[in-house]
Nucleic acid binder design. Structure first.
Lengths: 200, 200
DNA sequence: ACCTGAACACCGTTCAAGT
DNA sequence: ACCTGAACACCGTTCAAGT
C-alpha cells in the first residue's frame, strides 16, 4: 500500500532525531547504566543510520553531557520543592537531604552518571547553571538554619559542603545496598534514619 | 644472534602472565581510569596474543575483580594503620576518616573502581573478606568511642554506617574537586577540616 | 597447562557523497 | 541542513588448533 500525498510523509529525514535519541538514552541509562549507551544502537533504534547522531552530538561524551544537563535540572527541581513545605529551616535542610537520597535510589542510572566521575562531573557541574544552583539552594538553606542559631559560628560554605558530603555518602551507600540487614524492604526510610542520626 | 641453551629461555610461555597483566592494569587504572582497561591492549603490551588473558581471567570483569581485591586489601591496611597510633578512640576514628580520604585522592583510579558502582561494588565488598573487614575495623573503633561515652545511646551499626557515609561523601567531593576556592593547593587538608567539622 | 589465529559481533569516529 | 555508506581502528569473546 503505497502512500499518496499525506500530511505526514513517512520515512523522511526524521526531523526530531536529537530528542528521540535523548529519550531512548534516558531509558537505557536507567535500565542498563551509562556504560551501555551506544550511539550506534540508539541510532538504529531510531531507524536511522549509524552516523546520523553525529549531526546532533560531536561525540559520545556530548550525548552524555546532554543527559547530565537533564539530570541537574531534575535534581534542582526536586531539591527546590523538597524544602518548600518544611516547618522549620532545619527541617527544610533534612527534607533536601532525603530528596537527594530519594533521587539516587529512584534514578540510579542518572545519579551515577552525574556523580561517578569519569572526570567529567566537575566540569559538567560548573558548566551547568543548574548544577551550581543546586549548591546555591543548599547554601541558602544552611544560612537560614544558621540565622535561627544552628552552628552559627561556622562558615556557611563549610557547613554546606559537609552536609552535602554526608548526604552524598548516604546516597552512595544506599545505592550500593551497603547495609545488609534483612528488613531493608524500604531502603529510603532506613537511610533517612541514618541521615537524621548524623544531622545534629 | 640466536641464543643457545641459556638458563632463562626467552620468548617462552611467559609463565607469570597473570601478575604481569595485573601490574600493567594497576598502572593504567591510575593513569586513564578503569573504563580504559582493555584485555587486548594489556595482552599486546605483555608481548602475548590477544586471547591469552582468557587463560587467567574468564572475562574483563574478572580482571576488574582481581584489581578490586588488591584495592580492598590496601584500603584495609591503610585504615588499620591509621587508627593505631591515635591518642584517643575518637582521634582514631578521625584518623581513619582522613586515611580514607587520602586513599581516594592518592589512588583515585582504584577508589573509583571500588566505589563507582557499575553494580559490582556490593558483591565485591561482600565477597571479599578484606572489604567487610574494613567495615569491621570501623565498627570496632566506633564501639571503642561509645565505650568512652560518645553517642553511647545509638546502635553502633547506625553510627558506623553514618560515619562511613560522611567520610565517603567527603572523599567523593574531594575527588570531584567540588570546592572552588583558590587556595586549594592541599585538598586533603581542606577536606579533613570539613570532615572534622562534621564529626562531633 | 598455556598460548595462538581466525572468526564473530560489536564499538566510536571520519569523510566523501547523496537528498 | 540533515542523512547515508564505506572505511578505519579499535573492542570482548569463542573455539579449534597448536606446543
Amino acid at each position: 500500500m503505497p502512500h499518496g500525498p499525506e500530511t505526514e510523509p513517512r520515512e523522511y529525514h526524521h526531523r526530531d532525531l536529537r530528542n528521540h535519541l535523548l529519550e531512548l538514552a534516558l531509558v537505557d541509562l536507567e535500565h542498563h547504566g551509562a556504560h551501555s549507551l551506544s550511539l550506534r544502537s540508539l541510532a538504529s533504534r531510531c531507524g536511522v543510520s549509524k552516523t546520523a547522531p553525529y549531526r546532533h552530538f560531536p561525540d559520545r561524551d556530548a550525548l552524555l553531557g546532554a543527559l547530565m544537563e537533564v539530570g541537574w535540572k531534575d535534581l534542582y527541581a526536586l531539591l527546590a520543592s523538597a524544602h518548600r513545605h518544611a516547618s522549620s529551616p532545619l527541617e527544610g535542610l533534612r527534607a533536601m537531604g532525603r530528596g537527594y537520597v530519594a533521587f539516587a535510589l529512584m534514578r540510579s542510572g542518572m545519579y551515577r552518571l552525574l556523580f561517578s566521575g569519569e572526570g567529567k562531573t566537575l566540569s559538567s557541574l560548573k558548566g551547568c547553571p543548574e548544577g551550581s544552583d543546586s549548591f546555591g539552594l543548599l547554601l541558602d538553606q544552611v544560612k537560614r538554619c544558621q540565622a535561627s542559631g544552628w552552628k552559627s559560628s561556622e562558615k556557611p560554605e563549610t557547613i554546606a559542603l559537609g552536609f552535602w558530603a554526608l548526604v552524598h555518602g548516604v546516597a552512595d551507600l544506599a545505592l550500593e545496598n551497603l547495609a545488609e540487614h534483612p528488613e531493608s524492604s524500604d531502603r529510603l526510610q532506613y537511610w533517612s534514619m541514618i541521615l537524621d542520626t548524623m544531622t545534629p
